[in-house]
């Protein structure tokens, strides 16, 4: 996984609440057996007409937002299915940060496994950042994970909380399977214990 430290880029506003994983990446694109190449289908049914032409009014089809690296979104982003194709599609498009007031649990976790930083901020901050994101080519935010800060176009700063373990994994780009395998001994001991007291498992 790629390390995450700071990111500067265009932020796209997606104020809709409850953006679900079917919107982020519709099921017809889940048939892949790869992780890559999903960016072209990100938000497919909102971004493209049935004949494949672009929906001009959709934010990611507009000029500066085609280069977005950040999304500022309505409440409860990523609800729905567990498909990791959702963060894969975001990442493949170039989105590395999503900012909202709340995220669905599974989506939130999946982001961290792929080097995407989901940031939770209070409603007021989110609304300010949405306003920033409306500013077209001036909609540039700078996210500093180490400092836990988002720098707005006017230079002011929004700070955010994040779980220290998750933060460290992102900063170091850690593979947590390797981390967990370091606990091999404890896992084996657990299995021994379980075999004797709950042999039916």
């Amino acid at each position: 996984m790629e390390k995450f430290s700071t990111l500067e880029g265009i932020a796209a506003p997606l104020p809709l609440i409850n953006i679900d994983t079917d919107m982020i990446i519709p099921k017809q694109f889940l048939k892949t057996i790869k992780r890559s190449g999903l960016g072209k289908n990100l938000f497919d049914e909102m971004r493209f007409n049935q004949d494949g032409s672009e929906v001009p009014s959709f934010v990611l089809n507009k000029k500066p937002y085609r280069q977005s690296k950040i999304i500022v979104a309505g409440d409860n982003f990523g609800c729905g299915s567990s498909r990791e194709h959702a963060p894969w599609a975001l990442l493949d498009f170039g989105i590395k940060v999503v900012i909202s007031t709340s995220f669905a649990d599974i989506f939130y976790n999946n982001c961290f496994k792929n080097g995407i930083l989901p940031i939770i901020v209070p409603t007021e901050d989110r609304d300010n950042l949405l306003d920033d994101a409306e500013k077209g080519s001036n909609a540039r935010l700078t996210v500093n994970l180490e400092m836990q800060e988002i720098r707005r176009p006017d230079g002011s700063v929004v700070s955010f909380d994040i779980d220290p373990f998750k933060k460290q994994c992102l900063l170091d780009g850690l593979d947590d399977i390797a981390l967990s395998l370091e606990k091999e001994k404890s896992i084996a001991e657990f299995e021994e214990r379980q075999k004797s007291c709950r042999p039916w498992v």
């Binding site: 992780r35 599974i106 395998l181 896992i187």
Partner: peptide
Amino acid sequence: HGIGTSEVEHVLATQT
């Protein structure tokens, strides 16, 4: 509970 694909790999490899 439901998990993502990275977690599927994690469980396959570690059972945790």
